[in-house]
């Protein structure tokens, strides 16, 4: 043993040295370091936990924010849609109004134009009558007395003889509405007589008067869905067909 270097004194010295060192180190450092390490570990765990909670909270907040954002976007879209709709409706209303006004204006203009035409045609009627009489005088060679001539011509143009509508003679017509077409505008007296006659014959309450120079003379009467052609043009056409 002595030759291996093992010596009781040295051995005891080393053991004591180790023991003293262990106690000294325990007092100096280990205890504090371990508690510090554990505290740090705990703190780290705590911090991690906190971080996890914070992350969760952030996630929640993000989700919430996203929901709020989505809601706001939906609301905004809704508002935009409503506004657009309202604008469209308003626009449409305005358009309709404008169109109505335009139509009214047009109607007024048309009515005016029709009245104007009727007036001109009315003026024309006397001239045409005069011309026709003059031409007849030339052809016939005799002068007709003026009141008779005018009566004839009036009859020709209005298709009304002795207060009766010619075309209504022998015709069986019934209807609520009647339309009377003449080559030249009828005078108020003629209109009255026509109206009276038609009322009695067909029972039509509403009668409208039209002017169409194309029928040359006479009347075209439309009651309900039936048309009675008493016009000169119609008669000429029928004659032509009969001849051919």
């Amino acid at each position: 043993m002595e030759k291996l270097g093992i010596n009781l004194g040295f051995l005891i010295f080393q053991i004591l040295n180790f023991g003293v060192l262990a106690i000294l180190m325990y007092a100096l450092g280990y205890k504090r370091i371990i508690s510090a390490l554990e505290a740090r570990k705990q703190r780290i765990a705590q911090a991690e936990e906190d971080a996890r909670v914070a992350a969760e909270a952030r996630q929640n907040a993000e989700a919430e924010a996203r929901a709020v954002l989505t809601k706001a976007q939906a609301e905004a879209a809704e508002k935009v849609r409503e506004a657009t709709e309202r604008a469209i409706v308003a626009g449409r209303e305005i358009t309709v109004q404008v169109e109505a006004e335009a139509a009214k204006a047009r109607e007024a203009a048309l009515a005016e134009a029709a009245m104007e035409r009727e007036r001109i045609l009315g003026d024309l009627r006397s001239q045409v009558a005069a011309l026709a009489i003059a031409a007849a005088q030339k052809l016939v060679g005799e002068a007709l007395d003026a009141p008779r001539q005018h009566k004839l011509i009036d009859e020709f143009f209005s298709g009304v003889k002795a207060g009766k509508v010619v075309v209504l003679e022998g015709a069986e017509l019934k209807g609520a509405t009647a339309e009377v077409t003449s080559a030249l505008p009828l005078t108020d007296a003629e209109k009255d007589s026509v109206r009276k006659d038609i009322l009695t014959k067909t029972g039509s309450q509403t009668i409208t008067f039209r002017v169409d120079p194309a029928i040359l003379g006479g009347l075209v009467l439309k009651v309900g869905d039936k048309v009675v052609d008493g016009s000169v043009a119609g008669q000429v056409e029928a004659l032509r067909q009969g001849l051919s």
């Binding site: 040295f10 000294l24 450092g29 504090r32």
Partner: peptide, 29 residues
């Protein structure tokens, strides 16, 4: 009367270093 051998000196130096480490911990805390 206790002879100090060279290994005991080595041990004491190691002790010193270890104790200095411990003192650093003590001072830090």
């Amino acid at each position: 009367g206790f002879p100090i051998t060279n290994t005991i000196l080595g041990t004491l130096i190691a002790d010193l270093v270890v104790i200095l480490l411990g003192l650093s911990a003590y001072r830090f805390h």
